[in-house]
């Protein structure tokens, strides 16, 4: 158990290290930030001074080593635009993205799981076919378009919900959260729904596929032969087996939920990390881009790790045993 954990940890560190190189080099080839930062009328001397100040006059490998050195001191560089540490800029925006992503995930599970279960248990019903067709729409409609339609319908036409911003926030654990106030919650609904759409369809289809795979199994028939109630058969015997793939995939998808909240955040002017990264890319604010990408890498690696552990808890057959090999 311990050995396999250690092995995973080393693998994770290698992945992160490889990503630093890719990210750092990649960001360096997309453009020269000084051209954007500096006043176009500035003199040649002024230009050189800015370049030297940002450390961009050094060779790439030296910049990289400085960057790595910084990481070990918890310093991901200083934003060119805001002149603040990139990391603290991102962490400031983290709660907004986090609450958006978690709300979306909750919606996806609360809506997708029961619907998928229903569609799997009663595949011949008209309502099930309707659900499955609906999930195809959820998969294929582009998020940005659906977001715009939401605003058009619920904000402009009906006037029920605000079209953007976080609304009122309340402070909790040194961060401000929208979901703690009625107004903030009001603002959260549309973007969360928008972000949840794709994942809901995913959870729904995974659940349905799982039900159809588990139902014909002998152990389900045997459970019925024991005289168990239908509820017990479905919610214990079927659901427990079903949760293995559903938890694995939704867990992994949580990372992409955070990473790809960019689109939703832009449409609903949600001041989260996604909005920050788009702005930073436009300004070629290298340290922020690099820091953000590094955060995402670490997030994905960490999620993978957590899911592996969840997986072993759910499925007794894959417990990381010490007896085997």
């Amino acid at each position: 158990m311990l050995a396999s954990l250690l092995r995973r940890l080393i693998q994770a560190i290698m992945v992160i290290l490889a990503m630093t190189i890719i990210v750092f080099v990649g960001v360096n080839v997309i453009g020269n930030p000084v051209d954007i930062l500096i006043n176009p009328d500035a003199s040649q001397a002024e230009y050189a001074r800015v370049v030297a100040h940002l450390g961009l006059d050094r060779p790439l490998w030296q910049q990289y080593l400085m960057f790595i050195q910084g990481i070990f001191h918890g310093d991901f560089g200083t934003s060119f635009v805001y002149n603040k540490p990139a990391l603290s800029l991102i962490v400031e925006r983290l709660p907004a993205t986090l609450e958006l992503a978690i709300s979306a995930l909750l919606i996806a599970i609360v809506v997708g799981l029961p619907l998928g279960l229903y569609a799997g248990l009663h595949p011949e019903r008209m309502s099930s076919r309707l659900i499955m067709s609906g999930s195809i729409l959820g998969f294929s409609l582009p998020t940005f378009w659906v977001g715009l339609m939401f605003i058009l319908l619920f904000s402009v036409q009906l006037g029920w919900l605000p079209s953007g911003g976080r609304g009122e926030t309340a402070s909790f654990l040194d961060a401000s959260w929208s979901f703690l106030t009625a107004d903030g919650l009001h603002h959260l609904i549309l973007p969360a729904l928008n972000l949840a759409l794709f994942k809901t369809s995913l959870v729904l289809r995974l659940t349905r596929a799982g039900v159809q795979e588990v139902l014909p199994q002998d152990y389900v028939k045997f459970a019925r032969a024991k005289g168990l109630s239908e509820n017990r058969v479905i919610y214990t015997h079927v659901l427990k087996n079903l949760m293995i793939p559903v938890v694995t995939i939704t867990g992994l998808e949580f990372g992409s939920l955070i990473a790809f909240s960019v689109v939703t955040e832009s449409i609903f002017a949600w001041p989260g990390m996604g909005k920050l990264i788009i702005d930073s890319i436009n300004n070629l604010d290298r340290p922020v881009i690099v820091a953000y990408l590094m955060m995402m890498v670490i997030l994905f690696v960490a999620l993978n790790f957590i899911i592996d552990i969840c997986y072993t808890l759910l499925d007794p057959r894959v417990r990381l045993d010490t007896k085997g090999k």
Binding site: F222, R224, L228, E230, H237
Partner: peptide
Amino acid sequence: MRRLRGKRIAMVFQDPMMTLNPVL
């Protein structure tokens, strides 16, 4: 029927590898 099953009429299946739920 449910009350009869397991109580008065029971069944044993062919493949013991498949009849017990692997996660319980």
